[in-house]
Amino acid sequence: CFKERTRSLLREWYLQDPYPNPSKKRELAQATGLTPTQVGNWFKNRRQRDR
């Protein structure tokens, strides 16, 4: 489970760009304390949910 602060940050970035490039994923990973893989998976799952 991600912290609420982490989730809200991911949601904000998702609204700006649902397909972040690898450098954006690394930047988000540093900002949230997650790994780039976790960030990528979150975006993938979120895109799937929005279908």
Results as ranks from 00 to 15, higher is better:
Lys3Ala: 09
Pro20Gly: 03
Thr35Met: 04
Thr6Trp: 07
Ser8Ala: 14
Lys3Asp: 13
Leu10Thr: 00
Ser23Ile: 08
Gln38Ala: 08
Phe43Lys: 01
Thr37Ser: 11
Arg11Lys: 11
Phe43Arg: 03
Arg46Tyr: 06
Ala29Lys: 02
Asn21Gly: 13
Gln30Cys: 10
Arg26Ile: 14
Tyr19Cys: 09
Trp13Asp: 06
Gln38Ser: 04
Ser23Gln: 13
Gln16Leu: 10
Asn41Met: 09
Asp50Asn: 03
Asp17Ser: 05
Arg49Ile: 10
Phe43His: 02
Arg26Tyr: 09
Arg51Phe: 11
Trp42Gln: 02
Thr32Gly: 01
Ser8Gly: 10
Lys25Trp: 08
Phe43Asp: 02
Leu10Pro: 01
Trp13Gly: 10
Val39Glu: 00
Ser23Tyr: 03
Leu28Met: 14
Asp17Ala: 01
Asp50Cys: 04
Thr35Glu: 02
Pro36Asn: 02
Arg11Asn: 12
Leu28Tyr: 14
Leu10Ala: 01
Val39Leu: 02
Asn21Asp: 15
Arg7Tyr: 14
Cys1Gly: 08
Leu28Thr: 01
Phe2Ser: 12
Leu9Val: 13
Arg11Trp: 13
Lys24Cys: 07
Ala31Pro: 01
Arg11Thr: 15
Glu12Ser: 10
Val39Pro: 00
Pro18Val: 04
Asn41Leu: 06
Lys25Ala: 08
Thr32Val: 10
Val39His: 00
Gln30Ile: 15
Gly40Asn: 15
Leu34Ala: 04
Asp50Gln: 09
Leu34Lys: 05
Gln48Pro: 03
Trp42Met: 00
Ala31His: 13
Pro22Asn: 10
Trp13Ala: 14
Glu27Leu: 06
Asn45Gly: 05
Asn45Leu: 09
Pro36Ala: 10
Phe43Met: 03
Arg11Glu: 13
Arg11Gly: 09
Phe2Gly: 13
Leu28Lys: 04
Leu10Ser: 04
Thr37His: 12
Gln48Tyr: 13
Pro18Cys: 13
Lys3Val: 04
Glu27Gln: 08
Pro22Cys: 08
Phe43Ile: 04
Ala29Leu: 01
Pro22Lys: 07
Ser23Pro: 08
Thr35Tyr: 02
Leu34Glu: 03
Arg11Tyr: 07
Asn21Phe: 06
Asp17Thr: 02
Gly33Glu: 01
Arg7Val: 13
Arg46Trp: 02
Gly33Asn: 14
Glu12Lys: 09
Lys44Ile: 05
Thr35Asp: 04
Tyr14Arg: 02
Trp13Gln: 14
Tyr19Val: 06
Leu15Ala: 15
Leu9Trp: 05
Asp50His: 06
Lys44Ala: 09
Arg7Asn: 15
Arg5Met: 11
Lys25Ile: 14
Thr35Leu: 03
Gln16Thr: 10
Lys24Thr: 12
Ser8Tyr: 13
Arg47Glu: 06
Arg11Pro: 06
Ala31Val: 11
Arg51Ala: 13
Pro20Thr: 02
Cys1Ile: 15
Glu4Gly: 06
Tyr14Leu: 02
Phe2Asp: 15
Lys3Ile: 08
Tyr14Pro: 04
Gln48Gly: 09
Glu12Phe: 07
Val39Thr: 05
Ala29Gly: 07
Leu10Cys: 01
Arg46His: 09
Gln48Asn: 11
Ala29Ser: 12
Lys3Asn: 15
Arg11Asp: 10
Arg47Lys: 05
Lys24Leu: 08
Gln48Phe: 07
Arg26Gln: 15
Val39Met: 00
Glu4Phe: 10
Arg5Glu: 12
Gln16Tyr: 08
Ala31Lys: 12
Thr6Lys: 06
Phe2Trp: 06
Glu27Val: 05
Trp13Ser: 13
Lys3His: 04
Leu28Trp: 05
Tyr19Ser: 06
Arg5Pro: 08
Leu28His: 03
Thr35Lys: 03
Lys44Asn: 14
Thr35Pro: 01
Arg7Asp: 10
Phe2Tyr: 14
Gly40Met: 05
Gln38Thr: 07
Val39Arg: 01
Trp42Thr: 07
Lys24Met: 10
Ala31Ser: 11
Ser8Leu: 14
Pro22Thr: 15
Lys44Leu: 07
Glu27Thr: 04
Thr35Cys: 04
Ala29Ile: 01
Thr32Ser: 07
Leu34His: 06
Pro36Gly: 05
Asp17Gly: 02
Trp13Tyr: 14
Gly33Asp: 07
Pro22Ser: 12
Gln16Val: 14
Gln48Trp: 12
Phe2Gln: 11
Ala29Trp: 04
Cys1Val: 07
